[in-house]
Design a protein around this nucleic acid. Structure first.
Lengths: 336, 336
DNA sequence: CTGAAAGCGCTTACAG
DNA sequence: CTGAAAGCGCTTACAG
């Protein structure tokens, strides 16, 4: 019945005894740099050690290593919600890059609530992460400012705040691309579903869009909303009844899907009577019944780059922030 | 320029020196059970110790603790893809429950590929997890069988395999609920988009659906597909041209969304000419332009329960598997 | 090339 | 009630 005891994993000591050498030699051969290893033992001794390690299925104990080296090789990641596919994909990029560097990551939800951001960060710190990647920075920069003051190594991803190192999409440019597309189609009365006011993504996308319209002497109507379908639906309803735009830019695909529904509910045809564009080009966008025009942001790549950026921070440097290029994909929702 | 040195965190030793007591007393007061703490020091000593701990912002070093106790309080979670909102939501449930038990979790993608399942599992084991939660079990039970043989503590979530402890939705019942709904609407020619053949979710949902039709003397057409929109689109196309069903059950909301598109592309009206139902009731379902009928599975709760189940396994027990109840939400996509 | 020793920060029998 | 000691599994100066 009850589970049998799992046998204790091999340690440096086990191997040292088997191979008849000192534990420190084993450490250098198995876990040291190649130069260390070469200098630590003769070819034969080293081979014998490696042979034993393989036979005993040795794996270095990370807790012992961390305790000794004062480095956990752990990175904590904060996101608003992991069930948001945008953040999940960014996290996948972080994870990929981390694995390539021998780093482990763990991710936590903050729900964009300052109290949870703080609590989760303290949790990560108490787990002795080497650094943090924040995907939930608020534009006011309050919390990130505190962290910087405490000398906690961190970088931002997806959103920027203050002067802290970040990897983002060039959201301003992305918004402008949509505006240009709309203007080419002849839409002179446009609305923006601008997302949450504390996220630089929504702020920049909206600004890029509105500035381009303003350059034509046109003002755009703006409504804030949650980054989700229901929020987009409500925002589009307001836009439709209050200002009657012929084109709507939602700064997020999910909000755009909600807008699509609101357009239809108003008895209008998306893509024909009212153009709708989103942002991020999530996998769903192209597959919707009315395929959605969207600005693709390199989510996976942003995650990868953020991890690389954190590594430079951990090396004591102060790296430049990066802004990755967006790309517009035109589909039936802005067909006319 | 360069970041200032972060000051070393307080340790038991720091506190012991400040409070003028032995380090072991501090340990018992701060990290021991309440009884230990009570027995270890007088009220005043204990209070003094706690005061110092607070003042010095003491946080136990988890690596030292894990090294000493041979318990990491770490749980590894494997999922096919975190960017699948179903698995992301389940993981959120796991995370929530884990936090409540003082456990930390980390999650990895296996992409449903056996080689990656193995590699990620070894990685988790080398990080000395206390146990694993697998959200990517394959129905053949090959890999899970190996793990059980090695006495690795684990539970399954979302999918079941073999006799291993699992927390799933009652997928068979979920499939039957859809069949009953379709039959009530008078659909006698139905098709199923059955998902991947290695996932118990798709298998059970399909079986529950088909068995109910069979009880009426009716056979259903079945096509396998990926659990994504593109796969659902292709599968629906095949179904539509080959057998011309009046109702399609996709075992996954994303596949259902693809089916919605295929129906429309075929010049048919979803919900009027062809009924379409999905599974999981992801947040999008209710918000689609044509709201999607779907079977809600308690994703978050499944995650929570899986973590609880793992804890009983870690306590050496052999718990019963759990099947949570699904619930059908009828919407416009099966309006007639 | 190889070893002996100290120490990272904890917990926990053992002793009083 | 409190302390002294051993040890978890590593790494890394130091010495030869």
């Amino acid at each position: 019945m009850g589970r049998a005891e799992r046998k204790r994993p091999a340690t440096l000591r086990t191997i040292a005894q088997s191979a008849g050498v000192d534990i420190s030699t084993v450490s250098r051969v198995l876990n040291g740099s190649p130069e260390d290893a070469a200098r630590a033992a003769s070819r034969e001794t080293a081979d014998a050690i490696r042979e034993w390690a393989a036979r005993l299925d040795y794996r270095p104990n990370p807790h012992a290593k961390s305790l000794r080296t004062q480095r956990s090789n752990l990175v904590g990641v904060l996101v608003p919600r992991l069930s948001d596919v945008v953040l999940a994909t960014i996290y996948e990029g972080i994870e990929d890059a981390a694995a390539g560097h021998g780093l482990a990551t763990f991710v936590m939800n903050s729900h964009d609530r300052p109290a949870e951001q703080r609590a989760r960060t303290e949790l990560a710190l108490s787990r002795r992460v080497d650094g943090l990647i924040l995907g939930d920075a608020h534009h006011d920069g309050e919390f990130t400012g505190e962290l910087a003051e405490r000398r906690v190594p961190f970088v931002l991803v997806s959103r920027h705040a203050g002067e802290h190192p970040s990897v983002t999409c060039d959201d301003y440019l992305g918004g402008r691309l949509v505006a240009e597309h709309f203007l080419e189609l002849g839409h002179r009365r446009a609305g923006v579903i601008a997302g949450e006011p504390f996220a630089s993504t929504g702020i920049d996308r909206t600004a890029g869009f509105a500035d381009r319209y303003r350059a034509e002497g046109l003002e755009v109507a703006t409504v804030h909303s949650g980054f989700d379908t229901a929020g987009g639906h409500r925002a589009a309803e307001r836009l439709l009844t209050e200002t009657g735009p012929t084109a709507i830019f939602a700064v997020n695909d999910f909000a755009a899907i909600g807008a699509l529904g609101a357009v239809r509910d108003a008895g209008l045809r998306p893509g024909i009577d009212v153009a709708v564009a989103g942002f991020n080009d999530t996998p769903l966008a192209a597959e919707l019944p009315v395929p959605l025009t969207s600005v693709r942001s390199p989510m996976h790549e942003m995650g990868r780059r953020a991890l690389e950026l954190l590594i430079t921070v951990l090396n004591g440097q102060s790296p430049e922030s990066e802004r990755l290029a967006p790309e517009l994909f035109v589909r039936a929702s802005t067909a006319r």
